[in-house]
Design a protein around this nucleic acid. Structure first.
Lengths: 214, 214
DNA sequence: TGTAAAATCACGCATTTGCGTGATTGAATA
DNA sequence: TATTCAATCACGCAAATGCGTGATTTTACA
């Protein structure tokens, strides 16, 4: 079979850009015809030539528009292209933004050319190659977003009522729904407010959702 | 220097368990003294012997308590141990639960013994080795959790007021904070409710947070 | 230049909410 | 056995809320 993968490189450092291109073109299956030293140049060319690369190797630290900002623009012009970030920036914010913008891989610049080629293949096969420290960051961010707090020791009844609050029901509606007097619901609400240390329905709802209390 | 990494294996398949142990013990730096065929056996032994392994290789499909349920228990007994999942289960739910429970790596069983050893080293160095398809799943789940909806075409002013709502302020407080008449705030609120298609403050707040409107 | 949308302000009213201040019952726990 | 705590119910009141029904002024844009 004759696989053919088209790659473009967007990287402002001339040396690294050329060495990436060279490394890629050593492979028979993977081909790099175009490289760009800025996001603007790449966007112009892609728009004009209606270029649809399989893979875009993208640096973050670019002159003018940075790599992260570039991702949505690239995806507009060529939605099927997979984007692999290759950068020195491994801080949470950049990683977070790149992933949310839709990058398919996140590699650091210390990588050998063999591993970069392997990563391109992985992405083409539906994978998401990542530097293992980046992966750790992603895992930690992911976990932190999904920890269920439990520190307020709400009773089951209170959790039940809190979740109805979050659904937008009034005291009266809650009372009807779970067959209680509205006085009882009121009483539960006060206890909930006390435990959550809030003084309004709004704050309780915010806290419940943001801190994943249910 | 003389690194020494203690590994235990929890895996019910005898063949795979033994082959893992053997592969690990071929390395001079990494050592596997104990293996277990069930979570319960591992927990008992760890508790009794006060074992503190550096790495726990953990299967998901175990008899009795499954690997995911095991993670919190293992972390209680030996909080410093890093857990690497090695399994055939690559569905979203298992991946999600494993990560949230605090796994440091997620590998599939088709991996060569060299790569497993390399993964152990990576975890010891603070990384999180992951099968690239698993990584893709994590990336997708992560991205999906962080997409900002924008489909309600709220104006800037409305977003501002909505965010103050979420903070728990009353109309009067909002009015004072942004130097408006409370009538004006009321008016904005009604427009927000209309755009979000809700009829209460509670529902608006829930929708704003859950759908990441701010 | 005209028009539509956004932002501002206003009154009245029925309903809802938060809170102070109680009480009773039953289950769990020390 | 005593005591604590969750769950239930009750009254009253000041404040806040949602909504109907207006109006005027900016701002954007076609």
């Amino acid at each position: 079979m004759n696989i053919h993968i088209d790659v473009i490189v967007i990287e402002d450092n001339e040396l690294f850009r050329d060495s990436l291109k060279e490394a890629i073109n050593k492979s028979s299956d993977i081909n790099c015809k175009y490289t760009f030293s800025s996001g603007e140049a790449a966007l112009d060319f892609i728009a004009k030539e209606e270029l649809v690369p399989d893979i875009i190797l993208l640096d973050i630290g670019l002159p003018g528009m940075n790599g992260i900002e570039l991702i949505p623009e690239l995806r507009k012009l060529s939605p099927t292209s997979k984007i692999i970030i290759i950068t020195v920036h491994d801080d949470d914010e950049n990683v977070f933004n790149a992933i949310c913008a839709g990058a398919s891989g996140y590699l650091l610049k210390d990588l050998s050319s063999e591993k970069i080629l392997a990563s391109i293949i992985e992405v083409m096969n539906g994978g998401a190659p990542m530097n293992s420290h980046i992966a750790k960051k992603v895992l930690n961010m992911f976990r932190d977003q999904n920890v269920k707090s439990n520190g307020y020791s709400l009773s089951e009844r209170e959790k039940e009522i809190l979740s109805l609050l979050v659904e937008g029901l009034s005291k009266k509606q809650i009372a009807e729904k779970i067959f209680l007097s509205h006085h009882t619901v009121d009483s539960h609400l006060r206890n909930i407010y006390a435990k959550l240390e809030v003084h309004s329905r709004s704050s309780a709802i915010s806290k419940a959702i943001k801190e994943k209390l249910l």
